[in-house]
Design a binder for these strands. Structure first.
Lengths: 181, 181
DNA sequence: GAATACCTGCGGCATATTGTCCCAATTACT
DNA sequence: AGTAATTGGGACAATATGCCGCAGGTATTC
């Protein structure tokens, strides 16, 4: 068995430090990067088999790191972490090859579990169908905005135009939280 | 090129009828099933190359149909539709092989686009069908409200509760926009 | 290099929409 | 009949939105 080497890409100082410690504690080797470039270098120079990527790195997303990771080690498991979860970005990430997608806040155990768990696909069939509540309008709005924004490669002005809402309004909505439940 | 044969699995009477018509209109051949068994049979008996599956089929999810579909025709494109917010199932669906995952409400164009679009994948060919105006947030909200209100037999209080919005607000919205745009 | 054209982030403001609370008049439901 | 739930609406404060304008950033073009 390989050594357990996790690449943690996260730009939040506090969170990454806490997470690193928690993972080290559990016997993992951790390499940390706060931005895409550093992460790329680490992928080149060291052999990692796990990666925890914060979706939102300052300006852009960390999705671009998935391909290099897979190339460097096809067997690596990749988990995308985000504070602004949406169906669109989740789908996007999985399509690109991420193995899982988790919304913050999440503790070390949850994260590790999501990273390691090989197909907990025993879950779906009935359990999900049980709690069927329609989406709240807020949630729906958030999902829709994310989807359109994604289609427009993050172009806020264009997205606002298509959504027929004022750019300033969209901008303000995006700064706020993604809506808890 | 194959004929365009879509399998539509949807248990909502109204929605499936409307969708079928819209798709037929666009030149697709449609097979409709309202439950898993019927769908399975259709998959066996006919050769479909597209599938639109409503995630929630009264108690069960339609995710179990993905494997048979892929087996029957590895090249088929599969779209999962859902009216309920669930990042977990979205991730699950994509992992299982669905090509896309979309939240209702969505109109025929959006659905078709999600079903066909290879997104950023590889096909730089299809730029013509790509530019479709997304719904405005207002219209999306309106449709969603109508749907939930309808599910609740017009009960405003209950609808407001499910939508997590204030009853007074819902009431005002309903009065104001007899016709939304 | 300079001009042009977008996009972005953000500070005011005036206006519009919501969240709350509260009531009186119906409508269920047991 | 009697209690619980629903409904339409008034009043008012708390937010949210539309709109304008500005400065800095990034391409693209001449």
């Amino acid at each position: 068995m390989d050594r357990k080497h996790i690449l943690l890409v996260e730009d939040d100082e506090v969170f990454s430090r806490v997470m690193s410690r928690a993972l080290l504690h559990r016997g993992y080797e951790i390499s940390h990067a706060a931005n895409e470039e550093d992460a790329s270098q680490l992928i080149e120079s060291s052999h990692v088999n796990y990666a925890i990527l914060d979706l939102n790195l300052g300006g852009h997303t960390s999705l671009g790191l998935i391909a290099p990771l897979k190339r460097s080690n096809p067997d690596s498991r990749i988990l995308i972490l985000t504070g602004y979860a949406s169906i669109t970005t989740a789908v996007e990430a999985i399509k690109l090859g991420a193995d899982n997608y988790l919304a913050k806040p999440a503790d070390a155990d949850e994260i590790l579990s999501a990273l390691l768990n090989n197909e907990q696909s025993s879950t779906p069939v009935d359990s999900e169908a049980a709690h069927l509540e329609p989406m709240s309008v807020r949630r729906l709005e958030w999902e829709h905005i994310q989807k359109v924004l994604n289609e427009n490669d993050g172009n806020i002005s264009e997205t606002a135009r298509q959504l027929k809402m004022h750019r300033r309004t969209l901008q303000r909505k995006l700064q706020k939280r993604p809506v808890a439940k």
